Simulated assay, not measured.
Amino acid sequence: MTLEGNILTPEGWFKGELMLRRGRIVGISGAPVNPDDNDAPRIIPGFIDLHVHGGGGADLMEGGQSLAVLARTHARFGTTSLLGTSMTASREALIKAFQDAGRVMASPPEQAADILGMHLEGPFISPDMLGAQPPHARPGTLEAFDELNALAPIRVITIAPEIEGHMALIEVLAGRGVRVQLGHTAATHDQCVKALCLGARGFTHLYNAMSGLHHRAPGVVGAALAHADYAEMIGDLIHVEPGGVLAARRAIPHLYVVTDATSAAGMPDGEYRLGEHRVFKRGDSVRLADGGLAGSALTMDVALRNLIHLGLTLAEASQRLSLWPARYLGLSDRGVLAPAHRADIVMLDSNLEVQQVWVAGRKVIE
C-alpha cells in the first residue's frame, strides 16, 4: 500500500509517498516541503493516549467490553495506541474491571487502537486530593498492585508519594519498569524530589489534583516545573488554560498530551458514568453534579488543533501527542513515521481534520 501527501518524518516534512507492507512502514520517498504551501493531506504518526477512562458511552470501570468500545471510539479520532485507565474504587470493583480488561486485551478488538496495557490511577492517592475520583483512596501495597497486574498489565501508576509506605513502593515498582507518576497528591516539593530520585518518572494531569506552585511552597507543580523530564497534561484548554500550558512546555522537555477522556468522549451532551460518579457533558466539558470537572470529552485530534491554536507547529504538536508518550513508555516501534516502524498513521486534511487512520497498517476509518 502507498499513501501520498505531506509526510512528517524525523528529518522533517517530505511531499511524496509512504509505503506500507505487513503492518510496517517500508519506505518513504519524496522531496522536502513546507506543508503550508499546498493542500495535499498531512500524514503524521498515530496518536498515543496514556490516560483514557472511556469513550463512545463506555466507561472502563463498567467492565465487559467497555475497553474494546473505548479503543474503537478513540481510533476514529486518530488514537492508534492507548492505556485503559481505571478509577479509584473498591478492591472488588477494580478486580472485576481488570479481569474484563485482561480478557479484551487477550482478544484485541478490530478497528480499534492498540491497547498497550493499563494506567492504574488510584486507589493509592491522597484522600485530600481526590479531584473527581470516588472516595476509596487507600495506602498502596505491592500485594495489591500484583493482584491487579496479574489480571491486566499495568504500565503506568499514579501514586501520592507522601502516604506512608509509598516511597518504598515507588522504588520497587520503578525497578520493575513501571512508569510511576505523581498525582492526586498534596506532597511537598521535597517529597516529590525524593520520589523522583527513587525512580518516579512523570506527573499525572499536571496542575490538576496536586499541590500548586507558591514561591515559598513550590509543591508538586513546582517540583514538576523544576525537575521533570516527562509529564502528562490534559489538552482541552479547560483543565489548564493557555498560559499554564505554555509555561509547562517551556519548563518540561518532554511534556505530552493526554485526554483523560470519559465515556462522554465522542458522544452528544447528556449524562454519563465515570466510575461510581454520574457526570454530565455540556459542550466541551464533563462535570460532576456540583460543577467540578470530571475528566473530559476530549479526543486527541481536538488536542492537536488546540496546540496549533497556541502557536505550536504541527510537527511539534505531533511530537507531544505521539513521539514523547511512546518514548516515555519505552516504545521504539511507534511515535514516528520511519522505515521498520509500525504503520500507525493519521491522515489529516488541510484543516487538520482526521480523514483516515491506520493501526498497524489496517485502515480504521475511510
Results as ranks from 00 to 15, higher is better:
301 D>Y: 04
303 A>Y: 03
294 A>F: 10
293 L>G: 07
296 S>A: 03
282 R>P: 00
277 H>A: 14
276 E>C: 06
285 S>Q: 14
284 D>M: 10
289 A>P: 01
286 V>Y: 06
283 G>C: 12
284 D>W: 00
302 V>A: 14
287 R>W: 00
295 G>V: 11
292 G>Y: 14
293 L>T: 05
280 F>T: 04
286 V>R: 03
304 L>R: 01
303 A>F: 03
285 S>V: 12
284 D>Y: 00
282 R>F: 06
300 M>W: 01
292 G>D: 09
293 L>C: 07
273 R>Y: 01
294 A>P: 09
296 S>V: 06
295 G>T: 10
299 T>S: 14
281 K>L: 10
293 L>E: 02
304 L>W: 01
292 G>N: 15
301 D>W: 02
281 K>V: 07
301 D>C: 04
294 A>W: 09
302 V>M: 11
285 S>Y: 03
285 S>E: 13
296 S>P: 07
287 R>M: 07
300 M>P: 02
281 K>M: 07
273 R>T: 01
277 H>K: 12
305 R>D: 10
303 A>Q: 02
276 E>F: 08
303 A>T: 02
299 T>P: 06
288 L>G: 08
294 A>K: 08
298 L>D: 03
283 G>S: 11
277 H>E: 13
290 D>L: 13
280 F>S: 02
274 L>P: 01
274 L>Y: 03
273 R>Q: 08
274 L>C: 00
277 H>Y: 06
295 G>K: 09
299 T>A: 14
275 G>S: 09
286 V>E: 04
297 A>Y: 07
300 M>N: 05
290 D>H: 12
288 L>M: 15
301 D>A: 09
303 A>V: 04
293 L>F: 11
286 V>G: 07
284 D>V: 05
293 L>H: 07
295 G>C: 11
274 L>F: 13
278 R>Y: 00
288 L>D: 11
304 L>I: 02
303 A>H: 01
293 L>D: 04
292 G>E: 12
290 D>A: 11
302 V>E: 13
300 M>Y: 03
304 L>P: 00
274 L>V: 01
277 H>W: 06
274 L>M: 10
301 D>I: 03
305 R>K: 14
296 S>E: 09
302 V>P: 01
276 E>P: 02
305 R>T: 13
303 A>N: 03
301 D>N: 15
305 R>P: 04
282 R>M: 06
274 L>H: 03
298 L>P: 01
289 A>S: 14
281 K>H: 09
274 L>E: 01
302 V>R: 15
292 G>P: 00
283 G>I: 09
281 K>I: 06
283 G>F: 09
293 L>M: 08
284 D>P: 13
291 G>T: 08
289 A>Y: 00
273 R>P: 00
286 V>D: 03
286 V>W: 04
280 F>Y: 15
293 L>Q: 05
302 V>W: 00
280 F>N: 03
285 S>R: 15
297 A>Q: 11
276 E>H: 13
300 M>G: 05
278 R>I: 08
294 A>N: 12
282 R>Q: 15
282 R>G: 11
